[in-house]
Nucleic acid binder design. Structure first.
Length: 247
DNA sequence: AGCACA
């Protein structure tokens, strides 16, 4: 019995923050953060999502959970998940997030990125900015999202998607009718899911009727592929029910 | 490729 795990070089020790790269750099920051929030909130409460557009940090993001288990699950289930046509690469973040450190009481302002190496003297002269509390959670602030689904190819995801095959009374149509969506679901979220399939054209939602959407493809072969792939996909607690739209 | 806290 070897207790030696194959801890290869690039591993980082568990952290409640995950570091994501290989993100699609064309996506606007605000949308990116919202979508990440949407996708990852299924694994636990999210304290913060950070992303930057500087050269050095493009295509990367940090998602801060309120505990490390959520982060672990998120990595296990979402690493390599296709997201805006690219596969997310996810690891634990290398260091503790500020929002966590502030809650900890271990926060050190980053102007002076000094290590704490005082051996006998404490300096308390600096302003303790304790007034920050964790009330900044954006968990309920963001609209609907995903379970985990098998979009592009082999998504490393065991259980979860239970394709319900509804009797489709409507004949094939290049437009799909999606039902049972959480009311907060945004077109953007649906677009992210459906745009992975060939022939995707657009998502339309009806403000007056929350919970449903129309998704248009170039032809009905393509809409059929998307329908079968995403049938029963979970957005928050809800399984999408997809049928052909009535003509 | 790239691990920060606008």
């Amino acid at each position: 019995m070897e207790m030696q795990e194959a801890n290869q070089g690039s591993e980082v020790s568990p952290n409640q923050t995950i570091y994501i790269n290989n993100l699609n750099e064309k996506v606007k920051l605000d949308e990116l953060k919202k979508s990440l929030n949407a996708v990852f909130s299924q694994f636990g409460k999210i304290l913060e999502v950070l992303a930057f557009k500087t050269l050095k940090h493009k295509g990367q993001a940090w998602v801060v959970f309120d505990n490390a288990d959520s982060a672990s699950t998120a990595i296990a289930k979402m690493n390599d998940f296709p997201f805006y046509d690219k596969r997310m690469r996810i690891q634990y973040a290398k260091t503790k997030s500020d929002v966590v450190a502030k809650a900890d009481g271990t926060f050190v302002p980053r102007e002076k990125r000094k290590r704490q190496e005082e051996k006998g003297g404490k300096k308390k002269k600096d302003q303790h900015h304790d007034s920050t509390q964790m009330g900044m959670a954006m968990n309920s602030a963001y609209p609907g999202v995903y379970g985990t689904a098998p979009p592009l190819s082999q998504v490393p995801y065991p259980g979860g998607v239970k394709p319900i095959l509804p009797e489709a009374p409507a004949p094939p149509n290049n437009i799909l009718f999606v039902q049972n969506l959480p009311h907060e679901t945004t077109p953007m979220v649906l677009q992210m899911l459906f745009c992975q399939y060939q022939g995707f054209k657009e998502v339309r939602m009806v403000e007056a009727k929350p919970g449903i959407a129309f998704v248009e493809f170039a032809d009905e072969m393509q809409s059929t592929v998307a329908m079968q792939a995403l049938q029963g996909f979970k957005i928050q607690q809800n399984q999408m029910l997809i049928t052909y739209a009535k003509k």
